[in-house]
């Protein structure tokens, strides 16, 4: 119960502060966020968009961990946990893609740019979408669990590259990317306000509260989901 209370308090703070705290050129109060040129009010989207992307990575990691556990113990409950994490991971990847493309429309002018981060999340959607298709195509539960576990291990090996490495070594529009110097045409470390995005300390507090709240929410949803899968499977066996 304590976790649910913490979730309620944190999520309420994040939603209220994330929407209502003003963005001003010269913050002088603890509740004022600084203006980031090119983003302005839209900078607040970071409190809701980034946690969805974080949860997709966390969910795919958990899917792999329970895949490994299944291969070691041959316990179908681990496969159910891996499957529940996979389903949640897909949902949060879709949410990250949709919210990101809405943000892109109003910041960069169109819904999709094939920026490295957009491309990498699209590839992840294809990789994990194939895993869901694979799972639904196999009826034998042991075979399904084994294949799915191996697939989720191999699939997760690509995640650090697509999420953490590729967007940082290529020219892109997202914060942390490289950009082309307009004068020399050379690739340089991003210096424009959006690419060199730095959060103020109060923004960082709200941001980490948001990450924590969404992680607790994910944990809760994952538990309900995997319990439903396990009960269903046990019922089918009997």
């Amino acid at each position: 119960m304590i976790w649910k209370t913490i979730l309620f308090v944190l999520m309420s703070i994040v939603i209220i502060s994330g929407i209502t705290f003003p963005i001003v050129p010269q913050p002088s109060q603890w509740y004022e966020f600084p203006v980031i040129a090119g983003l302005e009010e839209k900078a607040k989207i970071i409190f809701f968009h980034v946690p969805t992307a974080w949860l997709s990575v966390l969910a795919f990691l958990m899917s792999m961990i329970y895949g490994i556990k299944y291969l070691r113990n041959n316990n179908l409950d681990d496969d159910s946990k891996s499957s529940a994490a996979l389903q949640l991971g897909m949902m949060f990847t879709i949410l990250a893609t949709v919210t990101g493309s809405i943000w892109a429309k109003f910041t960069w002018g169109s819904f999709w740019h094939w920026d490295p981060r957009e491309t990498s999340i699209f590839i992840l959607l294809l990789i994990y979408g194939s895993l869901l298709a694979l799972r639904s195509a196999i009826e034998n539960e042991d075979k399904r669990a084994r294949l799915s576990a191996v697939y989720s291990i191999i699939a997760f090996l690509t995640v650090p590259f697509f999420i953490f490495i590729m967007p940082r070594i290529m020219v892109g529009l997202h914060p942390g990317s490289l950009e082309l110097d307009p004068n020399t045409g050379k690739i340089i470390q991003g210096t424009s306000p959006v690419i060199d995005f730095k959060m103020s300390p109060n923004m960082r507090v709200v941001f980490f509260m948001s990450l924590t709240a969404f992680t607790i929410l994910y944990w809760w949803m994952w538990k309900v989901r995997y319990k439903a899968i396990i009960i269903k499977e046990n019922l089918t066996k009997k």
Partner: peptide, 26 residues
């Protein structure tokens, strides 16, 4: 643009709501 922020929050909660609806169905 504050409405864009609110719209995005709505999209996130809609996604979570649909997932919970599906779990409830199961």
């Amino acid at each position: 643009s504050i409405f864009i922020v609110m719209f995005i929050v709505l999209v996130v909660w809609l996604g979570i709501f649909l997932f919970l609806l599906n779990t409830d169905k199961r």
